[in-house]
Amino acid sequence: MINRIVTTMAEALEGITDGATILVGGFGNVGQPRALLEGLIERGVKDLTIVSNNAGSGGEGLAELMAHGRVRKIICSYPRSATSTVFEELYKAGKIELELVPQGTLAERIRAAGAGIGAFYTPTAYGTKLAEGKEVRMIKGRPHVLEYALHADVALIEAWQADRWGNLTYRRSGRNFNPIMAMAAKLTIAQAQHIVELGGLDPEVIVTPGIFVDRVIHVPYGDPPV
């Protein structure tokens, strides 16, 4: 019997080591796997490369991981927000490396990794600082920039519902980077609000089939009011 559901955080995060490249789902705090990030802090791994759209806000989740000095480098599109003070301080002090990637290029680099595509050309960022040093090719009369797939050791994602095969659904805009990150890592770990019986998810609404998921941990936060 296939059972990808684990019951403890230690089992969920088993095998993550120092120096790992970790994809972290979410757009801002929505869809961010907070419990898994807290577990990662507990686990104590360091020298991490984190790939996430934002660089954490407030003092929890990704921001807390960075505050503990565990993140060597962040690859993201938008590290700034009114409350991204942890990142800002580390950045000003030269204690964290930043690779800034246009958001669509970030998503496509992750998608490409999951789809077995080594690199692709895009017009995004041509003629800007973010394309400096990158190969450019004219395609149908328009300059395109070469961008490489972004593979990772681990993906940490937040789902809404999961079954024991690791089939997942998401809630509203909490979907964001989670499905493509699930496909791009060697080890994909999902925290899910609800665990349902196998067969309990309509096959037409499963967004991430279990082939992309290694472990699921049940983390109920409580349902939203509507």
Partner: peptide, 20 residues
């Protein structure tokens, strides 16, 4: 970006939207 040096740059989806 305004080119200020000690502020971390942030781009989000601006380049994708402008080009696409």
């Amino acid at each position: 970006a305004t080119g200020e040096r000690d502020v971390a740059p942030a781009v989000g989806g601006a380049m994708d939207l402008a080009a696409g």
